[in-house]
Amino acid sequence: MPPPVSALTREQYAGRACCWCGTRLWRGAVSAGIARGRQGAHVLDAEVWACPACAEARPCPV
């Protein structure tokens, strides 16, 4: 389960950095699922990505 949207940096939210460790995703990225979040009536959900090392350590529950 990825972290909530409120815990992500701009780079992580945009999919340019690992959602767990913050490493730039220059080469290879694994989908980490959907980070959930809301601000009032606005849904801020975003697909987030992980580096291969973090993806291996935290497998997706799907």
Rank of each mutant, 00 (worst) to 15 (best):
A7R: 09
A57Y: 00
A57Q: 13
E56P: 00
V5K: 04
P59S: 02
P3F: 01
S6M: 07
W20M: 11
R16S: 07
L8H: 09
A17W: 02
A17L: 05
A53V: 15
V43R: 06
P52A: 09
E47G: 10
S31Y: 06
D45N: 12
V5R: 04
L8E: 10
A35Y: 00
G37L: 10
G22W: 03
P59D: 04
A7K: 09
R24C: 02
A32W: 10
A29M: 13
C54N: 09
C19T: 04
S31W: 08
C19W: 01
V62R: 15
A50W: 06
P61N: 01
S31C: 12
A7E: 08
G15C: 03
S31N: 11
I34K: 15
A53F: 07
P2D: 05
A32E: 12
P52S: 13
Y13K: 12
C18M: 03
T9K: 09
Y13T: 06
A29N: 10
V30N: 07
H42S: 09
V62D: 15
C19I: 03
V48F: 08
L44S: 01
L44Q: 10
V43S: 07
C21D: 10
Q12W: 00
V30Q: 14
R10V: 12
L25W: 08
R36T: 07
V62M: 11
C19Q: 11
A7M: 08
A46N: 06
T23W: 04
C21L: 07
T9I: 09
A41S: 13
R38L: 10
A7Q: 11
P59Y: 01
S31F: 06
T23G: 02
V5N: 00
W49L: 15
V30A: 12
R16P: 03
R16K: 12
C51R: 10
A41I: 11
C60D: 15
R24E: 15
R36P: 05
A46T: 14
P52H: 09
A53Y: 08
V30H: 14
V48M: 11
G15R: 08
E11H: 05
G28C: 14
P61I: 00
A57E: 15
E11R: 12
D45V: 05
A14R: 14
A46K: 14
Q12P: 09
G28H: 10
A53Q: 15
W26G: 13
V48D: 13
T23A: 11
A57P: 00
P61A: 02
V43T: 05
A14C: 10
A7T: 05
E56Q: 11
E56T: 05
A50D: 13
P4D: 10
L44A: 00
A17E: 05
R36K: 14
L44T: 02
H42V: 15
A53E: 15
V30M: 15
R24V: 08
C18Q: 03
P3T: 03
A57T: 00
R24H: 01
R36E: 12
L25Y: 08
A41N: 14
S6P: 06
A17V: 03
Y13C: 03
A57S: 07
H42T: 12
C19V: 08
W49S: 04
C18E: 02
